[in-house]
Design a protein around this nucleic acid. Sequence first.
DNA 1: CGACACATTGAACGAGTTCAAGACTTGTGG
DNA 2: CCACAAGTCTTGAACTCGTTCAATGTGTCG
Lengths: 230, 230
Amino acid sequence: MSCLGCGLRRLCFPGRFSAEGRYRAPELPIRRSRLARGAALFRPGERVRFIYTLRSGCIKETAATAGGGRDSLLAFYLPGEVLGMQHAGAERFTSTAVAVEATTYCEVPWSTFRRLCAEVPEARRELVRVMARAAQAPLDLVAMIRHREALGQLAGFLLNVAARLRSRGLHAREFRLSLSRAEIADYLGMTGETVSRCFTELAERGLIDVRAKHVQLLQPLELQRLFPGA
Amino acid sequence: MSCLGCGLRRLCFPGRFSAEGRYRAPELPIRRSRLARGAALFRPGERVRFIYTLRSGCIKETAATAGGGRDSLLAFYLPGEVLGMQHAGAERFTSTAVAVEATTYCEVPWSTFRRLCAEVPEARRELVRVMARAAQAPLDLVAMIRHREALGQLAGFLLNVAARLRSRGLHAREFRLSLSRAEIADYLGMTGETVSRCFTELAERGLIDVRAKHVQLLQPLELQRLFPGA
DNA sequence: CGACACATTGAACGAGTTCAAGACTTGTGG
DNA sequence: CCACAAGTCTTGAACTCGTTCAATGTGTCG
């Protein structure tokens, strides 16, 4: 995953906003790093200092609704996507971000962004756009699960992943789904068994091909029909 | 509903940010207006020009997931709450906002906010806070509906309304719920019949008192027990 | 006061869950 | 590199809860 598909590219390359309209080398103090499977990017209570973008791999964000309920999957992030925007303005994280598989990412300090926003009007506008995009994901999730039966939910889920990969310039017809069945189930609010059954059902109908974590969308249009309105 | 409980008060009274630390009279070109029941505040395709806050009444926001699906209820707004933040940065609205009952509101032009943000650092920070708060609502909805049976969903819904009223300084134990059963059902992703049955069930258990649209929470702690994790 | 929309209640059906057993990956150590 | 073991995934059967369809009841507005 290059910088081209990164959700922060417009902020990361302020040269983009210069009058000349030419790219300059990155000017932000970006640090590239990696996480092993299961390692945490941040945990509840830690100070919010950075914003992150994924270069490869997958990170899941989980949180317990402030009571006693166990953690459940709020969101997951694919290469090129921005993680941490929804914590803008907060002092400390309230959720946990854990690598689902080996992951590489960039981190940029908030302080830098604030300075950039103070100086560059277009950076302010871009920040608002990125925040608005981050706010869209939970709405997509609501659309996936509300008023839908399980098969339609899973169809919507697969199309969602495909669309996100496509928008970052990655293979969208065929991909590796590193989330486990249980994690998908948690995300969609059903049980692992039902996810399994639905994968099988979609495969039997010839709409997809599943081999463990490898998924191929054979008939995207038919999947769309199972997920009306999207 | 006075300006004190309004979600925009910190932006609306920029005097707040002045060195003297004193309030000044509102300096933003605010227009107060009203909507009759069923009237639209905005519709898909209209230009995004304003941000709104409710003074009284209730507004529902509906949208069809960009396909063919019929509109469904994405969010609803109570007095003091800010409507339109999630459209920041967008050119045109993609959703519909309709008054559920007779409603009064304020509108502030985005152009003013942009100017304010350019000049006042603290205004930028506050804008980010308000946007982050707007992004929280869909997550609350997800927590309400995912992995829950109908009775717990409704309990969560009532507690959510109560918490929101309380945070604006309004009566939280007893309130008028202007949304119809069908609208609540749509919001939670179930049927009107199930909403009815759950209202009845909660009333029979003595947790609430329902007389048509008037709701009283008799045992909030027991409602919490039905909605683990919140 | 009457009519229409909205809300409640009932009964049968169906989809998803639960519990449990068996098959397949995946990672590890020999 | 192979074999084994642990975890994950799949599949089955009974049961539960929400939906659906339909009828009755209640509130609200002209």
